Computed example of a mutant assay.
Amino acid sequence: MRGATADSVRRALDEPDPLPGTRGFAGAVDGRLVRDVLGRQPLFVDGGEWAFSPDELADPEPFPAGHVRPADGDAEPVWELPDPDPVTDERVAVAELREALAAALDDAAAEDGADATAVAFSGGVDSAVVASRLDAPLYVAGFPDSHDVEAARDAADAMGRDLHVVELSAADVERAVPAVARATGRTNAMDVSIALPLFLVAERAAADGYDRLAVGQGADELFGGYAKVARAPEDPRVAADTVRGARRELLGTLPDQLERDVLALRAAGVEPVAPMLDDRVVRAGLSLPGDALVDDRGERKRALRLAAREFVPDRVAFREKKAVQYGSLVSRELDRLARQAGFKRRTDDHVSAYVASRVE
């Protein structure tokens, strides 16, 4: 069992409780195969065999999140993400979120191995809140002129923290492409461009002697960080007709995204720590009203930013940030490498074709 004790998983099964106070779990307990409701721990099956890594199986398939499979049966859904009524008083909602964040961060700081933890730090509110209560070095990866490096330097200065900058080169990206593709089992441009900066920053942290990497994963999905959520129902990329409904749609994508990120980080030599996906934070986030996710001016992650003022300076809490693949300029470099290798933009998905060629 990874991510939780067998007893805590048994309690989650008996009640059943989808958010029993963990940061996710997967594995076997009492002859049953389980994976938590958000899929925070990857798990793969091949017939009657199972493993935490797809490399250990001949024909691996992801085990579905929120499911349980007895030894002599098929996987069945047991846990469903709660859909509570929103807390209508914004001050109460933000206070509850702030309390949940503090508890999750303090627990992460007190865990065994916390002294071997580094922080993936991009300068945005998510990673800054994670860093705020961890006595751990901060690492950012990006090209020298990238938005993420500039934002991380400014945020680290505002927080009075030292920062390790992993300045990327074309050679770094080129070298990492096949490693990331093989680790994640994916060659599509979007997945690889997201996982690459994580892999490279984790690789450096591991080389410096750290075996855990604290990350801000899950905050955008939980707190309304995506433009398509803010634009619901006008945005055709979501089916929901409300911001809260669109947020729930995005949470449904987490098992697939977290599988990618966790596998990439483990391949780089670290174990991820994701306080933003602590059950207490998830529960508080699910209770936020729509205008606490996106306010009437279009500001995203409003409640998180207000809660974050307890942990970080305002200029960090309210910073707007680009997605990691763009903020690090890794996506730009992948496009350049693909074209340099002869894959023209007029070709359908030329970057994915380039990645696949590197794996082959």
Rank of each mutant, 00 (worst) to 15 (best):
A230W: 01
F25G: 06
R315E: 15
R300W: 00
A202Y: 04
A128T: 01
D115A: 12
M190W: 11
S357D: 15
A155Y: 09
R2L: 12
G66P: 03
R315C: 05
A71T: 11
V316S: 02
E203I: 12
P54H: 12
V229F: 02
V324P: 00
E174D: 15
D55G: 15
V165K: 10
V281C: 04
A95M: 03
L200C: 05
A338N: 04
R244V: 07
V215F: 03
V34Y: 09
R336I: 08
L198W: 13
L213H: 04
P233G: 09
A292F: 00
L222A: 06
T242C: 10
E61R: 15
P42S: 09
E61W: 02
A120T: 03
A151L: 14
G27T: 12
P18R: 08
A28H: 04
R315G: 09
A158G: 05
L163T: 06
L33C: 10
F199P: 00
E167L: 10
R346C: 08
A317Y: 06
D335T: 09
A179E: 15
P86T: 01
R11F: 07
R346K: 08
A317N: 10
A308W: 05
R297D: 02
R244C: 08
Q217H: 14
V243R: 00
Q325L: 08
R40W: 11
V180H: 12
G73K: 05
E49P: 00
A102K: 01
L254K: 04
V165C: 07
A246I: 03
L222H: 00
D208A: 13
S331V: 02
R69L: 10
S127H: 08
A28N: 03
V94N: 01
D7V: 13
V355E: 09
L105K: 06
D261Q: 11
V270S: 11
E49A: 15
R358N: 11
A267L: 07
V316L: 04
A171D: 15
V37T: 10
D154W: 02
R336V: 13
F343L: 10
R204L: 11
P70F: 09
A246S: 01
L293W: 04
V34W: 12
E49H: 14
A28Q: 14
R300N: 02
D112P: 05
A207S: 14
V351D: 11
V238E: 05
D335L: 13
A214I: 07
A131W: 01
G342W: 07
R305C: 02
D30N: 07
G342Y: 07
S287M: 05
D46P: 05
V215A: 02
R98V: 00
L198C: 05
R336G: 04
A227P: 00
R175A: 10
R345A: 11
V359G: 07
D157I: 01
E56L: 14
A75K: 06
S132F: 07
E249S: 01
R182W: 10
L57E: 07
D14Y: 04
K228E: 03
A240Q: 06
M190H: 11
S331R: 12
R10A: 13
D17S: 13
L288I: 03
A116R: 14
A102D: 01
V243F: 00
V201T: 11
E15G: 07
